[in-house]
Design a protein around this nucleic acid. Structure first.
Lengths: 199, 199
DNA sequence: GTCTATAAATCGATAGAC
DNA sequence: GTCTATCGATTTATAGAC
C-alpha cells in the first residue's frame, strides 16, 4: 500500500471516468470537448489518449460502469431480502435507487447520452440495459403470481411504469436537496406499490 | 386558399421545426448539423439562415412549441373535467400525455436538449416549465385537501413522482407499438392513483 | 506517462449574386 | 427565398520527442 494516509487513492483510470462523467452530465457528451476533459484532469489533451482510445470509448466505459453498479446493487439487495415477492420489489427499488444516486454523474450520462454510442459499443450497452429490465420484469411477474401485485395490468406495463419512476429521478435529484437517497427510495416504493390515492 | 387539394399545407416555418425536431430526437441537438437539417428540408445550408437566426434559435422555438402544446392541452382538459379534484388529476394526465405523444419529436427534444440553450432563451424555457409544474402541484394540493389524495406525502413529492411517470414515457413510447396514446394515459393514471399492489 | 506540435476534417455562420 | 462560395474557429486524433 503506497497510498497516502487512510483511504485508498482512486486510480487514474477511475478519476478520468469520474471527471468526464461530471462534465458529460453538466453539458452533455457531444457538447463536451476532449480539451475540457483533460483540463479538468490537469493533463494535456494528447495525454488523455494514452488512457482511452477515443472520446466514444470514454462514454462507453461510463455507461458500462453505471449499468454494472446499479445491477449489482439491486441484485444483491434482492438476494438479502425476505422471500416474499413484495419485499423483493421493495429491495430492488431501494438497491437500484441508492446505487444510482451514489453515482449520479455516471447514471445520468448513461441514461441521456447512451444514444451517442455506435456500432458494437451501442449494441452491448443496450443489451445490458435490456437484460436488466427483463430481470426486473421477472421480479414483477413473480409478484403478480404470488398475489402481491395486481394482475389486471400486464407485467411489461407495470415494469415500464416502474422504470418511469426510477429513471426520471436523475433529472431532479440534488445531493444537497431535502431528500436523502433512502427517502427518495421510500417515495418511489410507496408510489409504485400504493399510488397517491387517499385510502 | 392556394394550398393543394384538401388539407392545408404546413408553412415552411412549421416544416423546419418538425424536421429539425425529428433529427434532434434521433441524434441529439449537439450531434445534429445544420447541413443535415437543410438536407432533410431539401434546401441549402445558407438558406436555412433566412428562416432562423441560429441553430440555437431553432432549438428554442422547438422547446417553446413543445411546452405550449402540452400546457394548453392539459389545462383545457382540466377545464372540461368534472369538478371533483380526482377527476381533474385524471384529466390533466390525459391531456398532458395525449398532447406529448402527438408531438413526440418536440417533447423529446425539449426534455433532453433543453440544457443546450443558454442565456435568456434558457431562462425563459426553464421558467415556462417551472410554472407549468407549479400549476400541476396546485392541482395535487387541491386533491389532497378534498381528501382525494393521500396527505402523508407532501404535495411537491407527489408531483415529482407524477412527472417521473409522465416524462420518462418519451423514451420508450413508439407510435407503432402496442400501446395507443390513450392507453398510455390510462396506464399512467392507474399507476399514479392506485399503484401496482393487488387489492 | 506526459509533453509540443500539427494534421485533417468539420462546424456554425456570413457575403453577396440572382 | 434560394443559391455558390468561403471564412474563421474548433474538433478529434496522431506523430514523435523526452
Amino acid at each position: 500500500m503506497t497510498e497516502p494516509a487512510g483511504r485508498a487513492r482512486r486510480s487514474t483510470g477511475q478519476r478520468i471516468l469520474s471527471d468526464a462523467a461530471s462534465l458529460f452530465r453538466r453539458h452533455g457528451y457531444e457538447a463536451t470537448t476532449t480539451r475540457e476533459i483533460s483540463e479538468a484532469l490537469g493533463i494535456k489533451k494528447a495525454t488523455l489518449y494514452h488512457h482511452v482510445s477515443s472520446k466514444e470509448d470514454l462514454l462507453y466505459r461510463i455507461c458500462l460502469a453505471a449499468l454494472h453498479d446499479v445491477e449489482v446493487n439491486a441484485k444483491a439487495a434482492v438476494e438479502q431480502a425476505e422471500a416474499r415477492p413484495r419485499e423483493r420489489i421493495r429491495a430492488m427499488i431501494h438497491g437500484h435507487t441508492v446505487a444510482m444516486l451514489a453515482e449520479v454523474d455516471f447514471s445520468h450520462t448513461m441514461l441521456t447520452d447512451m444514444r451517442s454510442l455506435s456500432g458494437d459499443r451501442l449494441n452491448e450497452v443496450v443489451q445490458l440495459r435490456d437484460s436488466y429490465q427483463n430481470w426486473t420484469e421477472s421480479l414483477v411477474r413473480e409478484a403478480q403470481e404470488s398475489g402481491d401485485l395486481r394482475e389486471d395490468v400486464p407485467a411489461p406495463h407495470l415494469t415500464l411504469a416502474l422504470f418511469n419512476l426510477l429513471n426520471w429521478t436523475m433529472f431532479w435529484y440534488r445531493a444537497d436537496g431535502d431528500l436523502a437517497p433512502s427517502q427518495v427510495s421510500e417515495l418511489l416504493t410507496t408510489m409504485f406499490l400504493d399510488g397517491a390515492s387517499h385510502r
